[in-house]
């Protein structure tokens, strides 16, 4: 069965890569299989992990869970155009929960923690590094500060403020370049993984 699975996986992998030549029936078939399989996969995972584990198993111990189930059911009314507007209630719940939860999480992790991590010692007894460390810390502190200045649009970017914003855009450009390079390398690593699968597992050319 695994032997058939390897042939199937190779067929689908090559089907996706066939798009590099041009759009074709093999690619469309592989793409359709991917859509169907992934939709089914997430329905199964969310059913067992969320609906079954968090509602079905505990529904008798905690009657309040029925409210969640009712809201979930209301979500499905979206499919009936006449009463589809009721689906706004669970959506409003999701909006409120996301705003409350993510708002606070971002405030804590992305503002407080990141700001705290950026305040680095540059001199005095707390600093024990070399000149190189000092310069690196300066790049980190100055780069973050200037980057934030660049995002501040309530004041015209002129004079000293404009110069700081210019340093900020340089920092951001380096970040974009580094992130781009990092993304390319991660995609390359996935590509190597697929080629390794084709040559090792499927064709058996690599030992």
């Amino acid at each position: 069965m695994d032997h058939f699975g390897i042939w199937l996986a190779a067929f689908l992998t090559l089907g996706i890569y066939s798009f590099l030549y041009r759009d074709n029936a093999w690619y469309k078939l592989s793409e359709s299989i991917f859509i169907g399989i992934s939709a089914g996969y997430w329905v199964v995972i969310l059913f067992w992990d969320n609906f079954y584990a968090k509602f079905w198993l505990q529904r008798q111990d905690d009657p309040m869970l029925w409210v969640g189930a009712a809201l979930g059911f209301l979500m499905l009314l979206r499919l009936i155009p006449k009463i589809g507007w009721i689906a706004r209630w669970p959506l409003a719940f999701i909006d409120g929960a996301t705003a409350g939860l993510w708002g606070m999480n971002f405030l804590a992790s992305n503002i407080m923690v990141q700001t705290k991590a950026t305040i680095m010692p540059l001199m005095g007894p707390a600093f024990s590094g070399s000149i190189g460390d000092l310069l690196s810390n300066l790049v980190l502190v100055g780069g973050t500060f200037c980057g934030l200045i660049y995002f501040f649009f309530s004041k015209e970017h002129k004079g000293a403020f404009g110069n700081a914003a210019r340093v900020g855009i340089w920092t951001i450009m380096i970040t974009f370049g580094a992130m781009f390079g990092y993304t390319v390398m991660s995609r390359m690593s996935l590509l190597i993984g697929r080629i390794d699968f084709l040559f090792r597992d499927w064709l058996g050319l690599l030992k």
Partner: peptide, 8 residues
């Protein structure tokens, strides 16, 4: 919990 159920 409701959030997870609605997600499903």
């Amino acid at each position: 919990d409701w959030f997870s159920i609605i997600q499903a």
